[in-house]
Simulated assay, not measured.
Amino acid sequence: MKYLLIMQVDQDVLEALSEDERKLVMDGHGKFMKVTRESGEFILTQALAHPANSVVVTGTGGTPVVTDGPFAEAKEFMGGFYLVDCDSKERAIELAKLIPDTRIKGLSVEVRPAMDSCGADL
């Protein structure tokens, strides 16, 4: 089963990290990728630009409307993800716990099953 491990980011938390903490996070992501590649569970990863670079196309029942955004009430946003293929939800949670963001207050990783894929040989 494929799982999306979605890294939820709070820009204020990231900016408050010391250089040593930033290095630990970056090194931890390298270790995570090494472990999941060696186990055969790694499929891909992608970092995403800050939401200020986004637009939202909204259905209106007629012509779609494009607005700047997303600007939700929450400070957190999807900063990137890993797509992994593992045997169970429990294993996906184990893998998510290896992502260094989970050890920093204010950051989190959402574990969500991927239900369908099309267009890529994944």
Rank of each mutant, 00 (worst) to 15 (best):
K2D: 00
Y3P: 07
Y3E: 07
Y3C: 01
Y3I: 07
L5M: 03
I6R: 02
I6K: 01
D10E: 01
Q11D: 11
Q11S: 06
S18F: 00
E19S: 06
E19G: 05
D20P: 04
D20G: 11
D20I: 02
E21H: 03
K23R: 10
L24H: 13
L24S: 15
H29R: 10
H29S: 03
K31D: 15
K34L: 09
K34P: 08
V35E: 15
T36K: 05
T36A: 12
R37C: 04
E38S: 13
E38N: 10
E38Q: 12
E38M: 04
S39N: 12
S39L: 10
G40D: 11
E41I: 06
F42L: 08
F42G: 03
F42S: 08
F42T: 09
I43C: 00
T45W: 05
A47K: 15
A47Y: 04
A47I: 04
L48D: 12
L48T: 14
H50F: 01
N53E: 13
V55T: 13
T58Y: 04
T58S: 14
T58G: 09
T60K: 10
T60S: 09
T60W: 01
G61P: 08
T63H: 09
T63F: 00
V65M: 13
V66H: 07
T67K: 09
D68S: 13
P70C: 04
P70Y: 01
A72R: 04
A72D: 09
E73I: 08
E73S: 12
E73V: 08
F77L: 09
G80E: 00
F81D: 05
Y82N: 07
D85S: 02
S88K: 05
S88Q: 03
E90G: 12
R91N: 09
R91W: 03
R91P: 07
A92G: 05
A92L: 02
L95S: 06
A96R: 07
K97M: 10
K97I: 04
L98H: 11
L98P: 13
L98T: 14
I99A: 14
I99F: 03
P100Y: 02
K105E: 15
L107P: 13
L107T: 12
S108T: 13
S108Q: 10
E110A: 09
A114L: 14
M115K: 08
M115V: 14
M115E: 11
S117M: 06
S117C: 08
S117V: 13
D121W: 08
L122F: 13
